[in-house]
Structures are given as C-alpha cells and as structure tokens.
C-alpha cells in the first residue's frame, strides 16, 4: 500500500519473474521448467487440478520451500540466491493469506495484525492499534479487534487473515485458495474485495485457486500447471486461454470437464 505521486513509475519491471523453476520432494519431481512473469498490478492466478503442486509453488515463491532448480526474481533480487537477511527483506514486501487463515490462536485479531508491525516498525502501541483497526475495517471486520480467532466464523478468520497479510503494506499479496470453505456469496465478496484492494493499493496479487468463477472474475494473468506432464502448459489471461487454447487438459479444466 504505497503510492508515489511525484515520479512516474519506472519502466515496468515485473513484480516476480520465475525462470526454469523445478520443484521436487526428494527425487520426486512435482513440476519442472516453469517460466512465467507476474507484472505489477496483476491478479495472477496459479491454477491446476488437485495435487498438481499449486500450493508447493506458492511455498517456493514465498520462501518456505527451496526449489530443486531455477530462479525466482523479485524486484529486489533473486529470492533463493540471496543471503537469509536479504531474503527476509524481500519477503517483508510480501504478505500471505493461508488457506485456513493461520491466525495465531492465542492472540486477538488486533494483536495478530499488530505483531509484524511491532516487530518491523517503531510505531507506538496506539498507532499499531489504529492501523490494525483500519485493516480490519478494510476487510469488513470493524469492531472485532478484541476477538480471538476461535470466537469468529471461518469466513471471518479468512478476512482477518487477509487483514494480517496486509499489515506491512506489502507490494505483493499471496493467497492460498482464498475461496476454499466459503459459501458462494462470501467467496464472491472476497473476490470483489481483492479487486477493490488491487485498484486502490496498486498491489500485485498472486492467487492459488481452482475455483473457475474466481479465476474468470479476478484473474488477468495466469499459469496452468498440468498434473500429467508435470510442467506448465499455458500462461496468460484465463479468459483468452479459454477462447483460444488448444491444449485438451486446459480446456478440460476451464470448462469443468465438459469439453
């Protein structure tokens, strides 16, 4: 959530560039030779069937799992070739919404959001509290500052998780299955929230999902992980992929197996 009104943005440098990425658990290769670019302001969808390695790719992108081969280039540098300190600096510009929210259960919502702020900024407790209220209000949870995660519903936990992901005003927000476990209306509202935040924050969103409705509603760029060939088979705007792709697997996926 950082805006600059003075200087025009420099020649568009991609938010993330992935080069020749191969991921493996031990000797078992999950995905090989991934190459794609996430531009600033994109809502970038990582799509694919269950078990294709979507969540693993996300874990590699956010520094939780080391790739077997290849590079992940953020604007500040290559994630896995950097020293751990530099890696932390890169990752501090990112925020992650985990599948279940992953809120710390021993802390209130305000404390959850305030934790990274109290660690990485020199703000006073009152300012941290105000920032936490603001983030909660942005996700429609005004007034829930002093609730514990166990006292609110699953959908609310997810939104609170989003508020926490935004705590440090990241440039890039990662979402792991944001609509999983939400009713269609809540899932739709979350999609709208993502679009509104994208427009007003000018942040980049990387969303792992297999919800077709979300994919077409919010995505303007994507990569399709093909579980059979164990590599990516297409990338681009999902709506155009649907219109033009000839890859039977991707067609199958984008049309719910009807074609």
């Amino acid at each position: 959530m950082e805006a600059s009104t003075s200087a025009a943005a420099p020649a568009e440098q991609p938010a993330i560039r992935v080069e020749n990425l191969t991921m493996a658990y031990g000797d078992f290769v999950i995905m090989r030779d991934l190459n794609f670019t996430v531009n600033r302001g994109d809502v970038f969808i990582i799509m694919g069937g269950s078990g294709c390695g979507k969540s693993t790719l996300l874990r590699v992108l956010v520094g939780l799992k080391e790739p077997a081969k290849g590079k992940i280039l953020y604007r500040e540098g290559s994630l896995w070739d950097s020293e751990p300190e530099k890696r932390d600096v890169i990752l501090r510009r990112t925020g992650i919404l985990y599948q279940s929210g992953a809120l710390f259960s021993s802390m209130t919502l305000a404390e959850n959001i305030g934790l990274p702020l109290s660690q990485y900024t020199r703000l006073k407790p009152k300012e941290i509290r105000e920032l936490a209220s603001l983030k909660l209000a942005l996700v429609g949870l005004a007034g829930f500052e002093d609730f514990y995660p166990s006292e609110i519903s699953g959908g609310m936990c997810k939104r609170a998780g989003l508020a926490r992901a935004m705590a440090l005003d990241p440039d890039i927000l990662f979402f792991d299955e944001p609509s999983a476990g939400l009713d269609p209306v809540s899932a739709h509202l979350l999609d709208e929230l993502i679009l509104e935040l994208r427009d007003s924050l000018r942040a980049t969103f990387v969303v792992v999902t297999h919800e077709l409705a979300s994919i077409f509603a919010i995505g303007n760029n994507s990569v399709f992980l093909n579980v059979e060939t164990r590599t990516m088979s297409a990338s681009g705007d999902p709506k155009e992929l649907l219109a033009h792709t000839t890859d039977p697997n991707l067609r199958h996926f984008l049309t719910r197996g009807e074609e």
Binding site: G143, F147, D199
Partner: peptide
C-alpha cells in the same frame, strides 16, 4: 486525497462497525 486513499477510506467505512462487538 490521493485516489487510492479515498477509495480505501471508503472501503473501510463500507461495513459499519458491529454494534456491541467491541469489548
């Protein structure tokens, strides 16, 4: 206000604070 800021403030006030929620 900057356009992004105005729309965020708008978004933040969209859902009214739940009455009685605050402890």
């Amino acid at each position: 206000l900057p356009a992004g800021a105005a729309s965020l403030l708008d978004l933040a006030s969209k859902v009214p604070e739940r009455q009685g929620a605050a402890r």
